[in-house]
Nucleic acid binder design. Sequence first.
DNA 1: ACCTCCGGGACCTCCCGTTGGT
DNA 2: ACCAACGGGAGGTCCCGGAGGT
Lengths: 189, 189, 189, 189
Amino acid sequence: MPQRNLKEQLVGGGFEVLYEKGYHAASVNDIVAAASVPKGSFYNHFDSKEALALEITRRYVERYDLPGLAGGDGPPLARLREHFEGIVAQNTRRGVRYGCLIGNFSTELAGHSEPIRELVAGSFDAWSAVVTEVLRQAQAAGELDASLDAGRLGPYIVDSYEGAVARAKVSGDRAPLDRFLATTFEQLL
Amino acid sequence: MPQRNLKEQLVGGGFEVLYEKGYHAASVNDIVAAASVPKGSFYNHFDSKEALALEITRRYVERYDLPGLAGGDGPPLARLREHFEGIVAQNTRRGVRYGCLIGNFSTELAGHSEPIRELVAGSFDAWSAVVTEVLRQAQAAGELDASLDAGRLGPYIVDSYEGAVARAKVSGDRAPLDRFLATTFEQLL
Amino acid sequence: MPQRNLKEQLVGGGFEVLYEKGYHAASVNDIVAAASVPKGSFYNHFDSKEALALEITRRYVERYDLPGLAGGDGPPLARLREHFEGIVAQNTRRGVRYGCLIGNFSTELAGHSEPIRELVAGSFDAWSAVVTEVLRQAQAAGELDASLDAGRLGPYIVDSYEGAVARAKVSGDRAPLDRFLATTFEQLL
Amino acid sequence: MPQRNLKEQLVGGGFEVLYEKGYHAASVNDIVAAASVPKGSFYNHFDSKEALALEITRRYVERYDLPGLAGGDGPPLARLREHFEGIVAQNTRRGVRYGCLIGNFSTELAGHSEPIRELVAGSFDAWSAVVTEVLRQAQAAGELDASLDAGRLGPYIVDSYEGAVARAKVSGDRAPLDRFLATTFEQLL
DNA sequence: ACCTCCGGGACCTCCCGTTGGT
DNA sequence: ACCAACGGGAGGTCCCGGAGGT
């Protein structure tokens, strides 16, 4: 039984600083400081900075609650909108300037870490698949035009969301996010 | 005029490495090596790595030829589609794995360099404004439903494009780009 | 008696890695991993890495079976040659690239660990003394010219052997070992 | 034109500490301290600690003056003996406890640095070749029994020397060196 | 303008040994 | 005896930028 739980502190502090500063700009020193953990303890819990980032990304994705989106009840389209509204809320909780962790890593780390690239790509795919599935539920329920290609629309919406968060991040303004919601749900679908 | 060789080499080599590796992962040493320029000459031409990145970003944006898009002739929607097809071609010329320089910088540098953040944000805004303008031309020409909110659609399309490039970068697959084109021009508009 | 398993595993795994990588290049982590022993258990059995190395060196020297060389029967010179052929076989069992543990430690650790330095020096001296003794037996038996200075020859042969193993280690070739055997027994004696 | 000559200082200080402490036990910090060079300057001159060790080894070997041994005048055997007496003097100048740099590296680094292993192996071979050549000159001059196999004897002598230095290093006593000289030149040849 | 050499400081990683609970 | 978790400190490497002479 651990005296303290340095690993969880590292995950917590690591998330803060990796999310806010990015991977390369966040040093292991920054991370252990944010986690209030002695530097020498870092590698007792993670093989590398990359391994910590991987773990953090995994947990980040879990918060999107894909099973809840796929299997929830209520009208599919409303569920989908609520889902994205929830994501927006998550990604703006500490302000609009930090974007989405997986979006950030997708551009910064695709060429530097194969494991992270795979995890991020897989997360986008899984997310897209669930969105697509909900779109199909909406078509089955007669909420959405059955002639629409859900398999193309699902990933498109996810990509558009990521583009919007990046835009919000750089502009410092949540408008892109609201625009995403409005355009997607009032015009595209 | 003296040979401006060194500076141009720096811009060229700097673009390669900044685009391919990202800002923090590319060292000034990498840049001067790619540019075949002695290390010590770097600071004769740029005050800092940031200044070089700024210059490179400026030139990168110029290649999007916004004036050409706004003022070209031919049917507006066709022009817009050709514009984005050209951008896709530019961003996939050396493969799909490098994404879009301004998209990359938007996520990596928003929190680190105020000048770059401003430049990137301004570039997105300018681009969005031109796309919006073309959309309005399409409405005037009766190509596009006049009731659509062009001011919302323009930026949305730009954001969706950026989301798609990021997705392609991380997946290693150009499908997101083709999906962007198809969905945007066949369904959204 | 309790299972002395862990300690023996440590000696076994420690030998592997200390022999193959050298003292400084082998970490305690490497050792416990090779021994399949939890890190925390190491210090229940040895006060330090140095103490383990000492124990390993002691056992290594025992395998040379000096009593067997001194007290064996048969013609002294033949016994001596068989002895060195056996040593060569031991030191090349896993290939020629690892040398002789005490030779390795003699160069790497003479200045770092007084106990190991003493043990290694003492081992060389003991070995030399036995070789000298066998040389005297050979002189008594008329196998070897009685005018030779056995007290000088014994240590010289040992030193030459160590030089040959080191040479083999660095060249990756067993020729120095065969040369040692041939020259020593066909020409020197 | 350099303000100071940090590279040469590094070679000098690096030799001291690498020779006296060994490769792994000598840190880059130790080296720069011994060289009175700021730590940050190290990598302006050498790509790595290994590269410095390589350079130092190269220069060390040059001091053996192999061309001088091969091409000198005077009776071959006397020249050879003077050569080894000179080497002994070099290797005992600061005491007997440091051994021979290439002998030290041969055991410590054979498995860690391929470039150093090659350089050391090549140096031994070159040295052996010259010794062999001088032996042949001695045979031609009638100083040495022509039936002896010089090609085997040359390398054997070099190996014996290295074994003797290692022995002296660990025993703290120059006796092995004197024994090497006496036995080699009074009995072996 | 050019460029060789310089360097304070920080990077990620890992070292050896300990602590304290079972 | 065992061992999971701990940690002060150092390891080799490289960063961005500057100094100073040509």
